[in-house]
Design a protein around this nucleic acid. Structure first.
Lengths: 167, 167
DNA sequence: CTGTTTATGATATGTTATAACATTATCCTA
DNA sequence: TAGGATAATGTTATAACATATCATAAACAG
Protein backbone atom coordinates (compact mmCIF):
# COMPACT_ATOMS: atom_id res chain seq x y z
CA UNK A 1 0.00 0.00 0.00
CA UNK A 2 1.59 3.23 -1.16
CA UNK A 3 0.25 6.41 0.18
CA UNK A 4 1.21 9.98 0.41
CA UNK A 5 2.77 10.69 3.75
CA UNK A 6 2.25 14.32 4.57
CA UNK A 7 4.26 14.31 7.74
CA UNK A 8 7.33 13.07 5.96
CA UNK A 9 6.89 15.49 3.11
CA UNK A 10 6.80 18.62 5.16
CA UNK A 11 10.50 19.29 5.00
CA UNK A 12 10.52 19.60 1.22
CA UNK A 13 10.82 22.94 -0.51
CA UNK A 14 8.16 25.53 0.12
CA UNK A 15 6.82 25.41 -3.41
CA UNK A 16 6.21 21.68 -3.51
CA UNK A 17 5.01 21.80 0.06
CA UNK A 18 2.36 24.35 -0.77
CA UNK A 19 1.27 22.37 -3.75
CA UNK A 20 0.90 19.22 -1.75
CA UNK A 21 -0.82 21.04 1.08
CA UNK A 22 -3.23 22.61 -1.37
CA UNK A 23 -3.96 19.21 -2.86
CA UNK A 24 -4.70 17.73 0.51
CA UNK A 25 -6.90 20.65 1.49
CA UNK A 26 -8.88 20.10 -1.71
CA UNK A 27 -9.30 16.44 -0.83
CA UNK A 28 -10.35 17.39 2.67
CA UNK A 29 -12.96 19.82 1.34
CA UNK A 30 -14.45 17.14 -0.88
CA UNK A 31 -14.37 14.70 1.98
CA UNK A 32 -16.32 17.11 4.18
CA UNK A 33 -18.76 17.97 1.44
CA UNK A 34 -19.44 14.28 0.90
CA UNK A 35 -20.25 13.97 4.57
CA UNK A 36 -22.46 17.03 4.68
CA UNK A 37 -20.09 19.23 6.61
CA UNK A 38 -17.94 22.16 5.61
CA UNK A 39 -14.24 22.86 5.73
CA UNK A 40 -14.51 26.59 6.38
CA UNK A 41 -11.70 29.05 5.90
CA UNK A 42 -10.59 28.91 9.54
CA UNK A 43 -10.83 25.15 9.74
CA UNK A 44 -8.77 24.97 6.61
CA UNK A 45 -6.16 27.33 8.08
CA UNK A 46 -5.78 25.17 11.17
CA UNK A 47 -5.50 22.05 9.05
CA UNK A 48 -2.87 23.77 6.91
CA UNK A 49 -0.87 24.50 10.02
CA UNK A 50 -0.80 20.82 10.86
CA UNK A 51 -0.12 19.75 7.30
CA UNK A 52 2.88 22.01 7.03
CA UNK A 53 4.44 20.85 10.27
CA UNK A 54 6.20 17.58 10.67
CA UNK A 55 5.88 17.97 14.40
CA UNK A 56 2.75 17.63 16.45
CA UNK A 57 1.41 21.06 17.39
CA UNK A 58 -0.54 22.24 20.40
CA UNK A 59 -3.70 24.29 20.07
CA UNK A 60 -1.76 27.33 21.18
CA UNK A 61 0.97 26.77 18.61
CA UNK A 62 -1.76 26.69 15.99
CA UNK A 63 -3.08 30.01 17.25
CA UNK A 64 0.40 31.46 16.72
CA UNK A 65 0.60 29.87 13.28
CA UNK A 66 -2.69 31.42 12.17
CA UNK A 67 -1.72 34.80 13.55
CA UNK A 68 1.64 34.81 11.79
CA UNK A 69 0.58 33.17 8.56
CA UNK A 70 -2.93 34.51 8.01
CA UNK A 71 -2.99 37.52 10.33
CA UNK A 72 -5.90 35.78 11.99
CA UNK A 73 -6.49 36.14 15.74
CA UNK A 74 -8.16 32.85 16.66
CA UNK A 75 -9.31 32.44 20.26
CA UNK A 76 -8.20 29.26 22.01
CA UNK A 77 -11.77 28.09 22.26
CA UNK A 78 -12.26 28.27 18.52
CA UNK A 79 -9.10 26.34 17.82
CA UNK A 80 -10.17 23.59 20.19
CA UNK A 81 -13.55 23.43 18.50
CA UNK A 82 -11.97 23.38 15.09
CA UNK A 83 -9.61 20.59 16.14
CA UNK A 84 -12.56 18.66 17.50
CA UNK A 85 -14.33 19.10 14.18
CA UNK A 86 -11.29 18.05 12.17
CA UNK A 87 -10.91 15.02 14.38
CA UNK A 88 -14.53 14.04 13.92
CA UNK A 89 -13.91 14.20 10.18
CA UNK A 90 -10.82 11.99 10.57
CA UNK A 91 -8.60 14.69 9.19
CA UNK A 92 -6.65 15.14 12.38
CA UNK A 93 -5.46 12.91 15.21
CA UNK A 94 -5.17 14.04 18.77
CA UNK A 95 -2.14 12.66 20.59
CA UNK A 96 -3.11 12.05 24.20
CA UNK A 97 0.46 11.55 25.27
CA UNK A 98 1.88 14.74 23.87
CA UNK A 99 -1.34 16.75 24.24
CA UNK A 100 -0.81 17.81 20.68
CA UNK A 101 -2.36 17.35 17.27
CA UNK A 102 -1.25 16.01 13.90
CA UNK A 103 -2.83 15.92 10.47
CA UNK A 104 -3.80 12.45 9.37
CA UNK A 105 -1.21 11.07 7.00
CA UNK A 106 -3.82 9.62 4.70
CA UNK A 107 -6.19 12.45 3.87
CA UNK A 108 -5.38 12.29 0.20
CA UNK A 109 -5.38 8.50 -0.04
CA UNK A 110 -8.34 6.64 -1.36
CA UNK A 111 -7.94 3.39 0.56
CA UNK A 112 -9.74 3.04 3.87
CA UNK A 113 -7.71 4.09 6.86
CA UNK A 114 -6.35 1.59 9.30
CA UNK A 115 -6.11 2.43 12.94
CA UNK A 116 -3.14 4.72 13.40
CA UNK A 117 -0.34 4.13 15.83
CA UNK A 118 2.07 6.91 16.69
CA UNK A 119 5.67 7.22 17.66
CA UNK A 120 6.20 10.58 19.32
CA UNK A 121 9.63 12.03 19.93
CA UNK A 122 9.84 13.16 23.51
CA UNK A 123 12.32 15.80 22.66
CA UNK A 124 11.29 17.45 19.39
CA UNK A 125 7.70 16.23 19.05
CA UNK A 126 8.30 14.78 15.63
CA UNK A 127 5.59 12.25 14.97
CA UNK A 128 5.69 9.13 12.86
CA UNK A 129 2.46 7.37 12.02
CA UNK A 130 3.17 3.64 11.83
CA UNK A 131 1.29 0.44 11.49
CA UNK A 132 1.77 -2.35 13.99
CA UNK A 133 1.16 -5.90 12.88
CA UNK A 134 -2.12 -7.50 13.80
CA UNK A 135 -0.39 -10.28 15.65
CA UNK A 136 1.38 -7.91 18.03
CA UNK A 137 -1.80 -5.95 18.59
CA UNK A 138 -3.67 -9.16 19.19
CA UNK A 139 -1.22 -10.43 21.82
CA UNK A 140 -1.27 -7.06 23.51
CA UNK A 141 -5.04 -7.02 23.63
CA UNK A 142 -5.14 -10.47 25.09
CA UNK A 143 -2.62 -9.60 27.81
CA UNK A 144 -4.65 -6.53 28.70
CA UNK A 145 -7.89 -8.43 28.69
CA UNK A 146 -6.48 -10.98 31.12
CA UNK A 147 -6.02 -8.13 33.59
CA UNK A 148 -9.70 -7.27 33.23
CA UNK A 149 -9.14 -4.17 31.15
CA UNK A 150 -9.64 -3.29 27.51
CA UNK A 151 -8.07 -0.63 25.34
CA UNK A 152 -9.98 2.63 25.25
CA UNK A 153 -8.96 3.21 21.67
CA UNK A 154 -7.19 1.10 19.09
CA UNK A 155 -4.97 4.12 18.50
CA UNK A 156 -1.73 3.50 20.36
CA UNK A 157 0.91 6.07 21.18
CA UNK A 158 4.47 5.46 22.21
CA UNK A 159 6.81 7.91 23.85
CA UNK A 160 10.05 7.64 21.90
CA UNK A 161 13.11 9.45 20.74
CA UNK A 162 13.64 9.94 17.04
CA UNK A 163 16.90 9.24 15.29
CA UNK A 164 18.01 12.86 15.43
CA UNK A 165 17.31 13.31 19.14
CA UNK A 166 18.95 10.02 20.09
CA UNK A 167 18.93 9.06 23.76
CA UNK B 1 6.91 -14.70 41.69
CA UNK B 2 4.54 -13.70 44.46
CA UNK B 3 4.57 -10.16 45.64
CA UNK B 4 2.47 -7.86 47.66
CA UNK B 5 0.34 -5.74 45.44
CA UNK B 6 -0.42 -2.54 47.26
CA UNK B 7 -2.73 -1.17 44.65
CA UNK B 8 -4.99 -4.18 44.89
CA UNK B 9 -4.92 -4.16 48.66
CA UNK B 10 -6.14 -0.67 49.13
CA UNK B 11 -9.81 -1.58 49.35
CA UNK B 12 -9.31 -3.75 52.40
CA UNK B 13 -10.37 -2.67 55.88
CA UNK B 14 -8.72 0.40 57.34
CA UNK B 15 -6.94 -1.55 60.04
CA UNK B 16 -5.17 -3.98 57.72
CA UNK B 17 -4.62 -1.17 55.25
CA UNK B 18 -2.81 0.93 57.81
CA UNK B 19 -0.72 -1.99 58.85
CA UNK B 20 0.35 -2.78 55.34
CA UNK B 21 0.96 0.87 54.56
CA UNK B 22 3.10 1.19 57.66
CA UNK B 23 5.08 -1.87 56.63
CA UNK B 24 5.73 -0.46 53.21
CA UNK B 25 6.70 2.91 54.62
CA UNK B 26 9.21 1.16 56.86
CA UNK B 27 10.64 -0.65 53.85
CA UNK B 28 10.79 2.61 51.94
CA UNK B 29 12.65 4.30 54.80
CA UNK B 30 15.24 1.53 54.87
CA UNK B 31 15.51 1.69 51.10
CA UNK B 32 16.24 5.42 51.23
CA UNK B 33 18.67 5.07 54.12
CA UNK B 34 20.57 2.42 52.16
CA UNK B 35 20.87 4.86 49.30
CA UNK B 36 21.93 7.77 51.45
CA UNK B 37 18.71 9.73 51.17
CA UNK B 38 15.92 10.36 53.63
CA UNK B 39 12.22 9.66 53.60
CA UNK B 40 11.17 12.73 55.55
CA UNK B 41 7.82 13.14 57.23
CA UNK B 42 6.27 15.01 54.32
CA UNK B 43 7.67 12.64 51.75
CA UNK B 44 6.28 9.81 53.76
CA UNK B 45 2.86 11.48 53.93
CA UNK B 46 2.74 11.87 50.17
CA UNK B 47 3.79 8.26 49.70
CA UNK B 48 1.09 7.17 52.16
CA UNK B 49 -1.49 8.98 50.10
CA UNK B 50 -0.49 6.99 47.05
CA UNK B 51 -0.24 3.73 48.95
CA UNK B 52 -3.73 4.08 50.31
CA UNK B 53 -5.32 4.87 46.99
CA UNK B 54 -6.02 2.29 44.36
CA UNK B 55 -6.40 5.07 41.84
CA UNK B 56 -3.65 7.20 40.41
CA UNK B 57 -3.63 10.60 42.09
CA UNK B 58 -2.61 14.00 40.80
CA UNK B 59 -0.26 16.28 42.70
CA UNK B 60 -3.23 18.42 43.64
CA UNK B 61 -5.21 15.46 44.94
CA UNK B 62 -2.23 14.62 47.13
CA UNK B 63 -2.25 18.16 48.51
CA UNK B 64 -5.89 17.64 49.48
CA UNK B 65 -5.06 14.28 51.01
CA UNK B 66 -2.30 15.74 53.20
CA UNK B 67 -4.51 18.62 54.26
CA UNK B 68 -7.38 16.33 55.23
CA UNK B 69 -5.39 13.50 56.70
CA UNK B 70 -2.46 15.26 58.35
CA UNK B 71 -3.72 18.83 58.59
CA UNK B 72 -0.70 19.70 56.48
CA UNK B 73 -0.82 22.57 53.97
CA UNK B 74 1.66 21.51 51.32
CA UNK B 75 2.34 23.95 48.49
CA UNK B 76 2.07 22.49 44.97
CA UNK B 77 5.74 23.08 44.41
CA UNK B 78 6.69 20.92 47.40
CA UNK B 79 4.47 18.08 46.31
CA UNK B 80 6.01 18.10 42.85
CA UNK B 81 9.46 18.06 44.38
CA UNK B 82 8.50 15.27 46.71
CA UNK B 83 7.04 13.24 43.86
CA UNK B 84 10.21 13.79 41.89
CA UNK B 85 12.22 12.54 44.83
CA UNK B 86 10.01 9.48 45.33
CA UNK B 87 10.29 8.71 41.65
CA UNK B 88 14.07 8.97 41.74
CA UNK B 89 13.99 6.44 44.58
CA UNK B 90 11.76 4.15 42.51
CA UNK B 91 9.02 4.36 45.09
CA UNK B 92 6.56 6.06 42.79
CA UNK B 93 5.72 5.92 39.11
CA UNK B 94 4.56 8.89 37.13
CA UNK B 95 1.89 8.11 34.56
CA UNK B 96 2.48 10.35 31.58
CA UNK B 97 -0.84 9.53 30.05
CA UNK B 98 -3.00 10.35 33.02
CA UNK B 99 -0.68 13.04 34.43
CA UNK B 100 -1.01 11.26 37.72
CA UNK B 101 1.10 9.28 40.12
CA UNK B 102 0.99 5.80 41.67
CA UNK B 103 3.01 4.06 44.34
CA UNK B 104 5.20 1.30 43.01
CA UNK B 105 3.56 -2.05 43.65
CA UNK B 106 6.81 -3.65 44.69
CA UNK B 107 8.26 -1.45 47.39
CA UNK B 108 8.09 -4.18 49.99
CA UNK B 109 9.28 -6.97 47.68
CA UNK B 110 12.83 -8.14 47.76
CA UNK B 111 13.18 -9.32 44.18
CA UNK B 112 14.49 -6.85 41.63
CA UNK B 113 11.82 -4.85 39.88
CA UNK B 114 10.91 -5.49 36.30
CA UNK B 115 9.88 -2.65 34.09
CA UNK B 116 6.32 -1.73 34.91
CA UNK B 117 3.55 -1.48 32.39
CA UNK B 118 0.31 0.23 33.29
CA UNK B 119 -3.30 -0.09 32.35
CA UNK B 120 -5.10 3.11 33.22
CA UNK B 121 -8.87 3.38 33.31
CA UNK B 122 -9.90 6.42 31.34
CA UNK B 123 -12.97 6.86 33.41
CA UNK B 124 -12.10 6.20 37.07
CA UNK B 125 -8.28 6.32 36.94
CA UNK B 126 -7.92 2.91 38.48
CA UNK B 127 -4.48 1.64 37.63
CA UNK B 128 -3.28 -1.89 37.18
CA UNK B 129 0.43 -2.59 37.02
CA UNK B 130 0.97 -5.52 34.69
CA UNK B 131 3.78 -7.35 33.08
CA UNK B 132 3.89 -7.82 29.33
CA UNK B 133 5.72 -10.81 27.94
CA UNK B 134 9.20 -10.27 26.62
CA UNK B 135 8.24 -11.56 23.22
CA UNK B 136 5.54 -8.94 22.74
CA UNK B 137 7.83 -6.20 23.99
CA UNK B 138 10.52 -7.43 21.68
CA UNK B 139 8.31 -7.39 18.59
CA UNK B 140 7.09 -3.96 19.51
CA UNK B 141 10.59 -2.64 19.90
CA UNK B 142 11.62 -4.05 16.59
CA UNK B 143 8.64 -2.48 14.80
CA UNK B 144 9.46 0.86 16.38
CA UNK B 145 13.11 0.59 15.58
CA UNK B 146 12.31 -0.04 11.90
CA UNK B 147 10.69 3.38 11.87
CA UNK B 148 13.91 4.93 13.17
CA UNK B 149 12.62 5.54 16.68
CA UNK B 150 13.24 3.92 20.03
CA UNK B 151 11.14 3.85 23.18
CA UNK B 152 11.90 6.68 25.58
CA UNK B 153 11.19 4.41 28.50
CA UNK B 154 10.49 0.72 28.81
CA UNK B 155 7.55 1.74 30.95
CA UNK B 156 4.47 1.47 28.76
CA UNK B 157 1.07 2.93 29.50
CA UNK B 158 -2.23 2.02 27.91
CA UNK B 159 -5.39 4.02 27.99
CA UNK B 160 -8.10 1.52 28.91
CA UNK B 161 -11.40 1.00 30.58
CA UNK B 162 -11.56 -1.24 33.61
CA UNK B 163 -14.18 -3.93 34.09
CA UNK B 164 -16.38 -1.71 36.23
CA UNK B 165 -16.38 1.24 33.84
CA UNK B 166 -17.06 -0.94 30.80
CA UNK B 167 -17.21 0.81 27.42
C1' DC C 1 28.35 26.52 67.06
C1' DT C 2 28.92 27.85 62.43
C1' DG C 3 28.74 27.14 57.68
C1' DT C 4 27.12 24.05 53.99
C1' DT C 5 23.88 21.15 52.13
C1' DT C 6 19.20 19.54 51.88
C1' DA C 7 14.41 20.29 52.30
C1' DT C 8 10.68 23.15 52.08
C1' DG C 9 7.98 27.61 51.51
C1' DA C 10 6.03 31.46 48.76
C1' DT C 11 4.85 33.71 44.71
C1' DA C 12 4.22 34.13 40.03
C1' DT C 13 3.43 32.33 35.81
C1' DG C 14 3.10 28.88 31.91
C1' DT C 15 0.46 25.33 29.37
C1' DT C 16 -3.44 22.68 28.15
C1' DA C 17 -8.33 22.55 28.34
C1' DT C 18 -13.38 23.35 29.14
C1' DA C 19 -17.76 25.73 30.66
C1' DA C 20 -21.13 29.05 29.76
C1' DC C 21 -23.08 32.35 27.28
C1' DA C 22 -23.11 35.88 23.29
C1' DT C 23 -22.82 36.97 18.60
C1' DT C 24 -22.45 36.32 13.67
C1' DA C 25 -22.86 33.76 9.31
C1' DT C 26 -25.24 30.65 6.35
C1' DC C 27 -28.87 28.61 4.35
C1' DC C 28 -33.56 26.95 3.88
C1' DT C 29 -38.30 27.87 3.14
C1' DA C 30 -42.53 30.24 2.84
C1' DT D 1 -36.49 38.22 0.11
C1' DA D 2 -37.84 38.13 5.12
C1' DG D 3 -37.40 35.60 8.85
C1' DG D 4 -36.22 31.80 11.47
C1' DA D 5 -33.30 27.66 12.21
C1' DT D 6 -28.83 25.84 12.46
C1' DA D 7 -23.93 26.11 12.35
C1' DA D 8 -19.78 28.61 13.29
C1' DT D 9 -17.24 31.58 15.88
C1' DG D 10 -16.30 35.02 19.66
C1' DT D 11 -15.69 36.32 24.68
C1' DT D 12 -14.75 35.64 29.25
C1' DA D 13 -13.73 33.03 33.10
C1' DT D 14 -11.71 29.35 35.17
C1' DA D 15 -9.96 24.50 36.04
C1' DA D 16 -6.13 21.33 36.19
C1' DC D 17 -1.45 20.31 35.82
C1' DA D 18 3.26 22.09 36.01
C1' DT D 19 7.66 24.84 36.48
C1' DA D 20 10.80 28.97 37.43
C1' DT D 21 12.76 31.71 40.83
C1' DC D 22 14.05 33.31 44.96
C1' DA D 23 13.57 32.94 50.13
C1' DT D 24 13.77 30.42 54.41
C1' DA D 25 14.34 26.65 57.65
C1' DA D 26 16.18 22.24 59.17
C1' DA D 27 19.90 18.88 59.46
C1' DC D 28 24.36 17.64 59.79
C1' DA D 29 29.43 17.76 59.39
C1' DG D 30 33.57 19.69 60.76
Amino acid sequence: MICYNIILMSHLSTASQMTSTAKVIKHAKQHCAARGSKLTEKRSQVLKGLLESKKALSAYELIDYCREKFDQQLPAMSVYRILEFLESENLVHRLELAKKYVACSHIACDHTHETPQFLICNSCNTVEEISISNSIIHSLRSTISKAGFHLASPQLEFECYCEACGA
